[in-house]
C-alpha cells in the first residue's frame, strides 16, 4: 500500500514546498494536526494524478504561528481553519479566515488538551444492584396533573 514516508519540514519552507509540489503536478490532499503529551506536529499530504502521495511533518505548538499555504492551494483553507480552531495554531496569511466560527465549539481549542484515558473502576455487583432496586411496597409518588388548557393570552383566532 502507500509508503509511509513523512519528510520533515520547518515553518519557513512550508510555502516553498507547496509551490514546488504544485509545479510538479501535485495537488493539496489534506492536512491535520496531531497532539500527544510528548509532541505536536502538523502533517501535510500532497497527491498526484496517479494517486501517489508525498507527506511532510511540521513540528508545531499551540499559539505558534505557521505560514498558510492557502495562497498556493485554495483547498487548504478549510483545513487550516479547522486546525486553528481546534488546536490553537495560528496561520498567517489565510485566504479565507473563519475567525473561530467554523465549528464554534463550546470550549475553545477543544483538541489542544490531551486527556489521560479514563480508568473504569470495577463496580461491586451487589452495591450496584442495591442502588437500582425498586421497592414495590412503597406507593408511587403523586405527580401533579398536566394542565392542558391553553395559556390566557395565546393569540387564538
Amino acid at each position: 500500500m502507500d509508503p509511509q514516508v513523512f519528510f520533515p519540514a520547518v515553518k519557513t519552507e512550508v510555502v516553498e514546498i507547496a509551490q514546488r509540489n504544485k509545479a510538479l503536478g501535485y495537488r493539496f490532499a489534506q492536512m491535520h494536526c496531531v497532539k500527544t503529551p510528548s509532541e505536536m506536529f502538523i502533517i501535510y499530504t500532497f497527491e498526484k494524478l496517479d494517486l501517489s502521495i508525498e507527506q511532510y511533518r511540521l513540528p508545531a505548538e499551540t499559539d505558534g504561528a505557521v505560514p498558510s499555504v492557502s495562497g498556493v492551494f485554495l483547498a487548504a483553507v478549510l483545513y487550516e481553519n479547522e486546525i486553528s480552531e481546534l488546536y490553537g495554531v495560528e496561520f498567517t496569511g489565510l485566504a479565507l479566515d473563519f475567525a473561530g466560527t467554523l465549528y464554534e465549539t463550546a470550549k475553545p481549542r477543544a483538541f489542544a488538551e490531551v486527556a489521560t484515558p479514563v480508568k473504569k473502576t470495577p463496580v461491586k455487583k451487589a452495591a450496584a444492584a442495591e442502588k437500582t432496586k425498586v421497592d414495590l411496597k412503597k406507593p408511587a409518588e403523586e405527580k401533579a396533573p398536566i394542565n392542558l388548557k391553553k395559556p390566557a393570552d395565546g393569540g387564538g383566532n
Binding site: D2, A29, H32, V34, I43, Q55
Partner: peptide, 22 residues
C-alpha cells in the same frame, strides 16, 4: 503511524492513525 486512503461513495477518504503502544 499510518495513513491510508479509501474510496467512499462520495470520494476519497483519508484515514490517519497513530498508536503509542497502549
Amino acid at each position: 503511524e499510518y495513513l491510508s486512503r479509501l474510496e467512499q461513495p462520495r470520494g476519497e477518504a483519508v484515514y490517519y492513525g497513530k498508536g503509542n503502544g497502549t
